[in-house]
Simulated scan of single mutants.
Amino acid sequence: MTKDHDEVRDLLAAWAFGALEPADEKKVPLHLAECEDCAAEAERLRETVRLLDGPQGPQGPQGPQGPQARPAAETLPLALRSRRATARVAAHAAPYAAAVAGLKALLPEAAGRWSTPVVHDWDVHATLAHLLAADEPLADRLGIDTRVRPPLDIDADTPWEDAWNRRTADVIAHEYGRTPEETVADWAAQADALLATPEAHDPELAAHAVTLMGMRLPVAEHFLVRAFETWVHTDDIGRAVGLSVPPPPEAHLWQLVRLAVRILGLSLGPTAPPVLFAVTGGDEWVLGSEDEPVRAELTLNPVDFCLLVGGRYAPDEVPRGTNGDEGAVRNVLERAASLAWL
């Protein structure tokens, strides 16, 4: 039962989005009939998907600059009701499939407002071009043809940050010579191609590690990175055009949180002052040295933590609960914010 329980819990997000593999379609309902905990979690996830597909209720967590940073609370009922079903993919790719579906639902609401400033010095059109470029390294590694020609021609020993900045600037410049609708079509086609790869459907194929954007991770986790960035930029665009974008479904959000915590722990290394880090509603981790007593405690909301790692909060602005050595806490917050390249 424990093995089945763990397996089914990992499948609940895909179940809620109708993205189960055929082999799992009988397993999940049978387990839900016997397990009250999983049934309750499944019901919460299904309700989240229902809300995503229908009229939105009150606005969710505040944006990184407080309530004044998000325009008057409009919602996305028409767009989200017409959102296409997410692709049938494995659990590791389900967050990306959902994020792509969410952005596809939002973009019709941005029509005619492509020049609206969004983030950095990008408008809506440039933000879509940025995502087209950002998906490109994983697409290229999985054998998908580059959508923007010519592809990046840069020395192999160029630091990845420099290579990435040059490529995204080149793609944005290229896309400004095309219509926003053409950019949207190419972004959507590339995203759909990623979700059609064998690696999006087979966890074993997605288990091999590759280095992209300076990070050596399993392909499965690179799909989570793509989900993370797609959601953050969807939220950017939503706020820019005055629409409230919901956070990822709970199970997907926790997949992003766990990945971000692991990357943050690796970035801090084994000698940083140890901090007990908790994400509300989830687990706790000791970040930093394991050879000395914990110096401080830090608690963040899961959405706020993801926005911090995504560069949408400054370290001194993110809402948090703390106790103990403020210097140790500040070290964790600053390191988390430094991970952002979005």
Rank of each mutant, 00 (worst) to 15 (best):
L12A: 03
A16P: 00
E21I: 05
V28A: 06
C35L: 10
D37F: 12
A39D: 12
L45Q: 10
V49A: 07
Q68M: 10
S82K: 14
R84A: 15
A85W: 02
A85Y: 02
A85D: 12
R88M: 07
A98F: 02
A101W: 00
K104D: 15
G112L: 01
W114Y: 09
W114N: 06
W122K: 07
V124I: 14
V124H: 04
H125L: 10
H130S: 08
L132M: 06
L142T: 00
V148C: 04
V148E: 06
D153V: 15
D153G: 02
P159F: 05
N165K: 10
R166I: 08
R167K: 04
A173H: 01
R178V: 09
P180Q: 15
A185N: 02
A193P: 02
P203C: 02
E204K: 10
R216Y: 05
P218Y: 03
A220G: 09
F223H: 00
F223W: 00
V232D: 04
P249Y: 00
W254P: 00
L259K: 07
L259N: 06
A260S: 15
V261M: 03
I263V: 13
G265K: 03
G269Q: 03
L276T: 10
V279T: 13
G281E: 02
G281F: 00
G288M: 02
E290H: 09
P293R: 11
D304C: 04
D304L: 03
L307G: 02
V318R: 05
R320Q: 13
R330L: 09
A337H: 12
